[in-house]
Amino acid sequence: MDIFTLAFMQRALIAALLAGLTSPAIGAYIVQRRLSLLGDGLGHVAIAGVGLALATGTAPLPMAVAVAVVGAVIIELLRQSGRASADVAMAILFYGGLATGVLLAGVVGQGTGMLSNYLFGSLLTITEADLWLIGGLAALVGAAAIGLMPQLFAVCTDEDFAKTIGLPVRFYNLLIVVLAAITVTVSMRTVGLLMVSALMVVPVAAANNALTGFRASFFAAIGLGVTAAVSGVIGSFYLNAPPGSLIVVIAIALFVLSLPLAGLRQRQRSAMPVIEITDPTPMPHQETDLHADHLHGPDCGHRAVIHGDHTDYLHNGHRHAPHGDHYDEH
């Protein structure tokens, strides 16, 4: 039997493709901004939307989109307020969302069985109407994530600088969390709301290990995300497991494979260790002649150590610093 001829599998595969495309695209910005768990929180908030839809008998996807976007705006406004209590407020919002969703689904007798399709992903429940909406939302996310790449990158790396060059930083910050909320709901059917954050973060982390540069690892992360999402959906058909779990396991396997690459790149040049001068008494002045064929410097290839206000270079048991026409042994 060819799974590609089954209508529900075709829909599931298209949904997986869209989830795999959009999740790492927005995840790249979220990881750069060190907000890796934001997607998880937004997923919890979206559960309230699903519960609300089940309770009112409306379509779950549009309701989840609406609730997650409202939650995202609240989260960003709390973060921008800069209050210490914002952290706690976000936690209340996240668990409030989760609890409300489960409660509402339970009240109308749908129970957690129905809800688990949304929590862990499902191959069978994707309708054609869902697919159109997912496609539209994915196009929106993709256009913004790629078209506004320089602006969003600038805002994620250095807000102050972005403000001084006249970028509307508050707007872009809001845009990032709203896009993340939309992405969460795009992936809801495939990966499930509890694990959607993994597809946003893990492929990005793997790509960051393997490659240099934001743009290069952005597109590599999308490639890894699509690989994990599509192969997870195909595998879950044969294993009869929820697709979300397999997608996340595959993504993490890809991450583990990327770890040796990170080690390799790290060894090329690791950050210089720092030795602080705590005793103000100067060391005895011990000179070493200039090496005839070698001048120590930032690129000389020897391990360097920051020593107080200067740099020492290490080789053959020596640790010395340039001083006039000779080196001082330190």
Partner: peptide, 25 residues
């Protein structure tokens, strides 16, 4: 504007990508 180096949060970018953000003005 050249901020203090420690305030910049750049995890994954090439030198050219960082410099290019200055063109966004």
């Amino acid at each position: 504007y050249v901020p203090q180096r420690g305030t910049v949060n750049i995890k994954q970018a090439t030198v050219a990508e960082v410099v290019a953000t200055g063109r966004l003005s």
